[in-house]
Design a protein around this nucleic acid. Structure first.
Length: 291
DNA sequence: ATTCACACCTGGCTGC
DNA sequence: TGCAGCCAGGTGTGAA
């Protein structure tokens, strides 16, 4: 599933293969792929035509491409299965091709949004006067841990204030962005924290270690995902790529913990799975009843 | 205000 | 062999 490292690989691909080019025409093949564009598919296509694409930006799992002239951006989210591909001229349509963007320099290939499950999509938004140029619809998305703007003290304060558990907090994009189920489990394993640990009990040091592990695992994944990147592909197949072999927690039910050898466990949790080591990541003690 | 459950979607896999 | 049902899970929405 595309989480921050996968999305960043796509961003770099867009920067390399789409930025600076001018859109000739856009074609929406599935209306659901532009459902967040409230003015509809025809408006989406019409307003994209003739625009010159600026530098590719990212916050958390969102990507956007600004059009310098009039302050609009095309915002993208890959959802569960979305791909942004630059395909050479003549490439047959993918089964789940949803949006095609043709450039004036057609020989350089076209940009395609391909998405099996259609959880992802593209939309157009006015740019903000915000210095970051952040589209207003993602103003609620917190900086991600690789962003210099990420504020660890504010994150810790928010954790202490919240009445929630640590994995829920990691997946809450308004507290910290870019983390999904896979990297949440990896960071918790590295931090020896149980997913149901109440955030209000975390010490400053534990928060610092957790953030540090989130950064480390993302950087390691980014390094692995970046290797296959120097092709005409904007890349990314929605999988963790080479990094999948390096996972310590996610998907390792019944396999030995790489630290202590105890069989890893899987628990159904919030309509998904949590993988953890029952020895390294002890369940929190129940909070004693107060009277 | 905060927290939480749920809908959305389809291909691959499991089990009968 | 065929088919029903489950599973993957990020996000927006609306309810509690």
């Amino acid at each position: 599933m595309p989480e921050l490292p996968e999305v960043e690989v796509v961003r770099r691909g867009l920067e390399r293969w789409a930025s600076g080019r001018t859109v000739a025409a856009a074609e929406v093949l599935h209306p659901r792929a532009v459902r967040r564009h409230t003015a509809g598919p025809a408006d989406f296509a019409a307003r994209l035509a003739g625009r010159r694409i600026g530098p590719a930006r990212r916050r958390g799992k969102y990507l956007w491409l600004p059009f310098g002239e009039d302050g609009f951006s095309v915002l993208a989210h890959l959802g569960m299965s979305g791909q942004l591909l630059i395909q050479p001229p003549g490439t047959p349509d993918e089964k789940h091709l949803r949006i095609r963007i043709v450039f004036e320099d057609a020989e350089g290939g076209e940009l395609r949004f391909v998405d099996q499950r259609t959880f992802g999509g593209l939309s157009l938004h006015p740019g903000e006067d915000d210095a970051e140029g952040l589209p207003d619809v993602i103003a609620h998305i917190a900086p991600d841990p690789l962003d210099p703007a990420f504020d660890e003290a504010a994150f810790h304060a928010a954790l202490r204030r919240r009445r929630t558990t640590v994995k829920r907090a990691l997946l809450d994009q308004s507290l910290i962005s870019g983390v999904g189920n896979i990297y949440a489990d990896e960071a918790l394993w590295r931090s020896r924290l149980h997913y149901e640990r109440p955030t209000a009990t975390l010490t400053r040091k534990q928060t610092a270690e957790l953030v540090s592990h989130v950064r480390d695992v993302m950087n390691a994944a980014l390094a692995a995902g970046g290797t296959s990147f120097d092709s005409l592909y904007v890349n990314v197949n929605g999988e963790s790529g080479y990094f999948e072999r390096s996972l310590d927690a996610y998907g390792r039910e019944d396999e030995p913990c790489r630290r202590c050898g105890t069989p890893m466990r899987r628990r159904a949790w919030m309509n998904r799975s949590s993988f953890y080591c029952p020895r390294c990541q002890r369940a929190p003690r129940p909070v004693p009843a107060t009277r």
